[in-house]
Amino acid sequence: MTPDISAFSLLIGAVFTSNILLANYLGMCSFIAISRDINSSNGLGMAVTLVLTITGLINWLILQYILIPLGIIYLRYIVFIVVIAAVVQMLEMIIDRLSQSLYMQLGIYLPLITVNCAILGVALFIEIRQYNFLQTLAYSVGSGLGWWLAIILLAAIRKKTDKSPVPEGLKGTGITMITIGVMAMGFLGFSGMLAVQ
């Protein structure tokens, strides 16, 4: 759609104006389940950013050099999801070997990521918007950072709402949804800054 947009504004845009979670609703499931606790939110956010960057680039390469030349683009869903599952599995093994402390911090969240819609969503957005390599890199990193930022913010707010007098029926998921809504409104304020679609 906008092939001439610079990589830098794409990065900033992906973090703020079109936050993958708050504007595109992707990655909600693990977002709501994990955001009770700041430490695990941080770990998951880091893991998502890492996996997003790697899979975004690999999927772009596969798309450009295998799927498009062979004309089998309709197989992209299966290919993307297999790549994501394989990358997550390999990362888990590599991190396990390299550093036990990092594994404790990141490794336990990795299996959750395979079914995180944000990862597949970014791969599909990259395909639809026809980004080039640099744009793909910027968009993947930016989306990961945006997701990370959103989950930490929500975890911090939820710490407060857990202790607040919330109406009976709204307790739990209800108030969480309303909170995310308010956050999304806040992020909407950035949309004047940059228009990235």
């Binding site: 595109n24 029926g169 709204l170 108030i175 999304a184």
Partner: peptide, 16 residues
């Protein structure tokens, strides 16, 4: 028309 409304509506539906 903007994204936040979906979150609000879902929250309200759960509340009801």
């Amino acid at each position: 028309v903007t994204p936040p409304s979906a979150f609000f509506l879902l929250g309200i539906i759960i509340w009801i």
